[in-house]
């Protein structure tokens, strides 16, 4: 029968079409970038300060700020951090004032319209190492060292990524890796060619609290400090979050009690229904 042939081929075509549609929709994913361009995914480290019930370790923040100041600050700015936020976090008032006074800032125009220089105050922001982005590029063979204020928030992997990047420079690039002139090989950096060379070596800084300054210790401290600079509100935010949870829990408990209280007459009443005796007097 020819109608059987048509039905059969239509069903076959529909099955093939459905399979093809499924393949297009749920089939293998297409990645725009090669794994090298994606960068090696960082190791997950058990950061203590990331836990929901832990504040930053402020001793580590103090060490991390020292690392930033002595190492990172040569090239990287920290534009969003004024000295006042360091007070009560990593420095005492006197230390922060002393640090701020080491730099000069522009005054407001005076009566003649001249702009003079004055020593820094607590309300001033930490000065950038270069006047502008162009100067920074010119000093670094065309590569712009990014501002570090929000870096932990700005990169996938956050703390893990920055720690892996800082400690992930191999002694030699692996065989077959193409490293451009003026770049360094780092598997964690997307594209693997990074303009920043390895900077953290054991004993690069001398910690005032006697902590051995291994490169991983310095990386860990500076990452925690950068996490603070990106989220200076984190300590207070976590504490407030717990308080909100506690208060909400108490209010929820009260609401449950009120509901049960209001419904208790409804839930405990007994309805008695006496059906009319059958065979008795008819209604109507």
């Amino acid at each position: 029968m020819w109608s059987n042939a048509i039905a059969g081929s239509t069903a076959t075509l529909a099955a093939i079409g459905t399979a093809y549609w499924c393949y297009l929709t749920f089939g293998p994913k297409a990645y725009a970038m090669t794994p090298a361009e994606e960068g090696l995914h960082p190791t997950q480290y058990p950061w203590e300060h990331v836990k929901l019930h832990k504040t930053f370790d402020h001793q580590a923040l103090r060490r991390g700020f020292q690392v930033y100041r002595e190492v990172c600050a040569a090239c990287h700015s920290l534009n969003r951090i004024p000295y006042r936020t360091l007070v009560g976090t990593v420095l005492t008032v006197d230390e922060a004032k002393e640090l701020a006074e080491e730099n000069e800032y522009d005054t407001d125009p005076n009566d003649e319209g001249e702009i003079e220089k004055r020593p820094g105050k607590l309300s001033d922001y930490i000065p950038a190492p270069y006047k502008n982005d162009e100067a920074a590029r010119a000093a670094n063979q065309g590569a712009l060292p990014p501002d570090l204020s929000l870096m932990v928030k700005a990169r996938h992997g956050g703390c893990n990524y920055i720690f892996s990047l800082l400690t992930g420079y191999p002694e030699e690039p692996p065989a077959g890796a193409v490293v451009q002139e003026g770049l360094n090989f780092n598997p964690y950096f997307p594209g693997t060619g990074i303009a920043m060379a390895r900077v953290l070596y054991d004993g690069l800084v001398e910690y005032e609290d006697g902590t051995p300054a291994t490169s991983s210790q310095m990386a860990k401290d500076v990452v925690e400090f950068l996490n603070w600079s990106a989220e200076p509100e984190a300590d207070e935010r976590k504490k407030m979050g717990w308080k909100v949870l506690a208060a909400t829990l108490a209010l929820w408990g009260i609401s449950v009690w009120v509901k049960r209280y209001k419904w208790s007459p409804v839930k405990t009443r007994k309805l008695v229904y006496n059906p009319p005796v059958s065979g008795g007097r008819k209604f109507g």
Binding site: K54, G88, D235
Partner: peptide, 8 residues
């Protein structure tokens, strides 16, 4: 108490 020794 939870964060003993960690805060400023």
């Amino acid at each position: 108490n939870i964060n003993k020794g960690r805060q400023w």
